[in-house]
Write a protein that binds this DNA or RNA. Structure first.
Length: 911
RNA sequence: GCCCGGAUGGUGAAAUUGGUAGACACAAGGGACUUAAAAUCCCUCGACCCUCACCGGUCGUACCGGUUCGAUUCCGGUUCCGGGCACCA
């Protein structure tokens, strides 16, 4: 770091600075009531082995934000932890025959080293790993609290069952309806599990979304749709002993109770009690119900499968007409949603329409629309097409609101009026009434897996499931098990399994299910804030939270964020914290993708080629015409972009980039490539460009001298020391080019205007976290400063002013190089560390202009520019424009209809 | 299937949210420096037309249509790509 050395060596400056920050605890935050706080968190990573580019992007975004706001005077907390439980550790354990714990802790150690090498200013004193008993004790503690309050409860739930490996499979482990290891067709199976009553909070989770203006609107909309509030009616269809063998009602929920008279059949889920009852004496139906159990449990799979049904032979009565309606079993009816049964209204519901067409069920129109009519079609070949229109093809408007027809007393009512009235009518005859439902389902937290937080329950033959006493927490997970793919290895561990019932002290069996990892990630940001607290949270939690800024992948838009919101509300209701929503602002970052190249081999298989082994061939216009392998020169096929993965050979190891170009170059590129929300496609060429820019910064700042004498940027009257007033006159500019004259940056005033305009843009863009244009602003600053002449005091002064601005503006993105230069130039001795340097201010005098250029449009087409005094009023501008040569030329004999003046921007003359 | 996004030069993108489309870069091409290379610096760079050249013109933000003096931006429709769908995290 010799001041005269003209070369930038990241390998020399980066590790040294990192060690310095480390030993000075430069990023350890403490609660300080004298400053505004800023709590900034990137979603904690899963310790998969090495950092990937997505992590680099995520933590660089939060680091840039944290560093900039610290300069703006905030007390910043930027902590880090590890989402250490989960499936991948079990898979790695099976593959390598090592316990998940060992694998996980080794990964954490390595990745932590990598984090430090990236120069992220993280407060490691608050680090958590969710697999640490001291951490998951609080999962267990709060689970028991929720059990006490009735928020956690036990009921059966449906899981994927691999009948060969005799194990529960995650959705990810079901491929094309088959177990990923056994290849056996997967079945649905019902088992007892614990659930959390998130649906009790559905209304608040929904209502608050409107107020959460720090969240992207699309995320709020996704959550709103996910919660899925539907207002409608519950309708009871009675049945009696004659038709079913016992009397009762078949309950359904409908958002369109106004189509009640159009119900021509009922459909129930395969697991519905009536379906099971009917199947007892019906072998065909039994087989059909068995068939419905095949396949996985995901909604996507359910929704895309072919809609099938079978009549149960049972009937119920229409609550208002007393007509008999056949009850069918339909594979598209979900037991988990509503009542597990629906009324079929084929004329006004697309799904029912398709079902009715397939099984030739009656279609009865009960809504009409002015100027629209469902075209009648021929009667059915079989079944009872008695009346009503019957269209061949579903039209979207069949489900539109309209006016009721063929609906007895309701006929003539609008859809809204009908809905309003029908609830009361149903209530009066005790066959239903108005009702609101949610799509949201309670949160199933039991996992039949080893590597997770043990559910703190003991099963006693006499007492049933008994909570582990609080004093016995945490229930510690044995860390030396190696799963083998055939169920939870805890079931083979007597030292874990065998215990005494806390109630009756008889021998009992410990629960071997573990908690969903979404539980871990619902409280980690509170444990950061209350690091080391002997309670779940302490007063420090209410200092730091609610979090000011949360940053993570858009892929977490629903589940994680919704669960964490719910968890916070439950804690609030137990008086553990004082706020309603955990995340004030949310930034959802895009993914980092890379190109995929492949070649089909002789056997019909696919060989992938690493992007850096592929070369693009260009045609004469510079357009890419094709790709060849650098290894054999033969063509390869381009297969678009995708997430980085080992199998596609398109992963980029951030470590290689750090080793080659340094962390600052990697950080700069990742920030420059795209705004945080957008997907990035990786490009090595871009990293080199970033590195070249940093080299230029190094060379430029190394050439700046006399920073102390000529310009004291920190002095309060800095704006009065405008270099323009310091006696230097602009050099002559070649004749003939007015535009060029205006933009000539060897003119000190122009250059300083440009510098401060750019600073103003950079500051604005920091505020909206658009870091790609922040980097671009820094590049513009350097471009400007490099053109400033060195042969005048004003030029020297401007270069000094510019250097102090550039280093501070660039610092949050590339802290190493800027800190090194800050010292080299001598600012650290003068003004202290860059860590807490004040954010540069835009000098008002630099932005003053006597004349400004407005864009001139004639009829909305750009026809040139007009120069007007910057203080000109709208009327004065209009007057100037009416006299402008260009305007006169275009107007000719025509008359000017009006002149639109957009102050400071443009003038549009309408002819 | 349902919900939410996205699409701008050869490439990544910008346009402070209705006001000059392509800032800032990457790649490419040309030039300077150099014995040479690297590094560095300078110039050109959306398409088409006119022109010796300058000047100038037309088109152009996935596609079709609309609102507006003016649309990458707002509205309706279409196509393709990405994310989520409750046990990947």
């Amino acid at each position: 770091m010799d001041a005269r050395d003209n070369h930038y060596h990241p390998q020399a400056i980066e590790p040294a600075l990192q060690a310095e920050w480390d030993s000075a605890n430069a990023y350890c935050a403490s609660e300080d009531a004298t400053k505004p706080k800023f709590y900034c968190v990137s979603m904690l990573p899963y310790p998969s082995g090495k950092l990937h580019m997505g992590h680099v992007r995520n933590y660089t975004i939060s680091d840039v934000m944290s560093r900039q706001l610290r300069m703006r005077g905030f007390n910043v907390l930027h902590p880090m932890g590890w989402d250490a439980f989960g499936l991948p550790a079990e898979n790695a354990a099976m593959k390598n025959n090592v316990p998940p714990a060992k694998w996980t802790y080794e990964n954490i150690a390595y990745m932590k080293k990598q984090c430090k090498a990236m120069g992220w200013g993280l407060d490691w004193s608050r680090e958590v790993a969710t697999c640490d008993p001291a951490y998951y004790k609080w999962n267990q503690w709060f689970f028991l609290k929720m059990l006490e309050k009735g928020i956690a409860y036990r009921k059966t739930g449906v899981v994927n069952w691999d009948p060969v490996d005799m194990t529960v499979l995650a959705n990810e482990q079901v491929i094309d309806g088959k177990g990923w290891r056994s290849g056996a067709p997967v079945e649905k199976r019902e088992i007892p599990m614990y659930y959390l009553r998130i649906t009790d909070y559905a209304d608040e989770l929904l209502a608050n979304l409107d107020k959460m203006d720090g969240w992207p609107s699309e995320v709020r909309l996704m959550q709103k749709n996910w919660i899925g509030k539907s207002v409608g009616a519950e309708i009871h269809f009675p049945y009696d002993e004659d038709s079913i063998g016992k009397s009762g009602v078949l309950k359904v929920f409908s958002t369109r109770p106004d189509t009640l008279y159009g119900a021509t059949f009922m459909a129930v889920a395969a697991e519905h009690p009536l379906a099971l009852q009917a199947a007892q004496h019906n072998a065909g139906l039994t087989a059909f119900i068995e068939e419905c159990k095949k396949g996985g449990v995901t909604e996507a799979e359910m929704a895309t499968q072919e809609k099938k049904g079978m009549p149960t032979g049972l009937f119920c009565l229409h609550p208002l007409t007393q007509k008999k309606l056949p009850i069918w079993v339909g594979n598209y009816v979900l037991m988990g949603y509503g009542e597990g049964a629906v009324m079929g209204v084929p004329a006004h519901d697309e799904r029912d329409f398709a079902f009715a067409k397939k099984y030739e069920l009656r279609i009865q129109q009960v809504v009409s629309w002015p100027q629209r009519e469902i075209p009648p079609s021929p009667p059915l070949s079989k079944g009872g097409a008695e009346s009503g229109g019957f269209a061949d093809q579903w039209q979207d408007w069949y489900s539109d609101d309209g006016v009721a027809i063929a609906s007895e007393d309701f006929t003539g009512l609008t859809t809204a009026q009908f809905k309003e009235k029908v609830g009361a009518v149903l209530s009066a005859i005790d066959l239903g009434g108005p009702r609101t439902t949610f799509r949201l389902r309670d949160w199933g937290v039991s996992r039949q897996r080893y590597w997770g937080t043990p559910v703190p329950i003991i099963h006693c033959a006499d007492c049933g499931p008994v909570p582990v006493p609080y004093a016995d927490l945490p229930v510690v997970l044995p860390e030396d098990c190696v799963p083998d793919g055939s169920g939870n290895p805890l079931n083979k561990r007597d030292d874990f399994l065998k215990c005494a019932c806390p109630k009756c002290s008889k021998p009992a069996r410990r629960e071997t299910d573990t908690l969903d990892t979404f539980v871990d990630s619902s409280l980690y940001f509170m444990r950061y804030a209350s690091a080391g607290a002997p309670t779940m949270v302490d007063a420090r939690n209410d200092y730091w939270n609610p979090m000011d800024q949360y940053i993570g992948g858009i892929s977490h838009a629903i589940l994680h964020l919704l669960y964490a919101r719910f968890w916070t509300k439950v804690m609030r209701d137990m008086d553990l914290l004082k706020y309603d929503e955990p995340f004030t602002k949310l930034l959802t970052q895009g993914m980092v993708l890379n190109h995929i190249y492949l070649r089909k081999n002789d056997k019909g298989g696919i060989d992938y080629h690493a992007p850096d082994s592929v070369e693009a061939k260009h045609d004469e216009h510079g357009k890419v015409a094709g790709y060849v392998s650098k290894l054999d020169g033969k063509p390869v096929e381009y297969n678009g972009v995708g997430t980085m993965s080992k199998s596609k050979l398109n992963g980029v190891d951030p470590q290689e980039i750090v080793d080659k170009y340094g962390a600052d170059s990697a950080r700069l590129f990742v920030m420059f490539a795209a705004p945080p929300e957008l997907t990035i496609e990786w490009s090595d060429a871009g990293v080199e460009g970033a590195n070249r820019f940093l080299n230029r910064v190094w060379r430029f700042v190394s050439g700046v001298t006399d920073v102390k004498a000529t310009f004291d940027w920190k002095s309060s009257d800095a704006t009065n020391q405008s270099p323009v007033d310091s006696g230097w006159t602009p050099q002559a500019v070649p004749e003939g080019d007015r535009d060029r004259l205006k933009r000539d940056l060897s003119n000190i005033r122009n250059a300083r205007l440009e510098l401060h305009k750019t600073l103003s843009q950079a500051t604005f863009d920091y505020g909206r976290a658009q870091y790609n244009t922040v980097v671009s602003a820094c590049m513009k600053m350097l471009n400007t400063l490099e053109k400033v002449p060195t042969d005048s005091p004003a030029g020297v002064a401007l270069r000094a002013e510019g250097t102090s601005i550039l280093l501070r503006t660039l610092y949050p993105v590339t802290p190493h190089i800027t800190t090194a230069l800050w010292r080299q130039v001598g600012y650290e001795k003068l003004h202290g560390s860059l860590l807490d340097a004040p954010w540069p201010e835009v000098a008002a005098d630099a932005l003053q202009q006597d004349e400004i250029e407005l864009v001139l449009q004639i009829n909305g087409k750009t026809r040139g520019k007009v120069t007007v005094p910057s203080k000109a009023t709208r009327e004065e501008v209009e007057e100037l424009v009416r006299a402008d040569e260009t305007v006169l030329k275009y107007v000719g004999d025509a008359t000017i209809k009006k002149v639109i003046v957009v102050p400071g921007r443009l003038v549009n003359v309408v002819i």
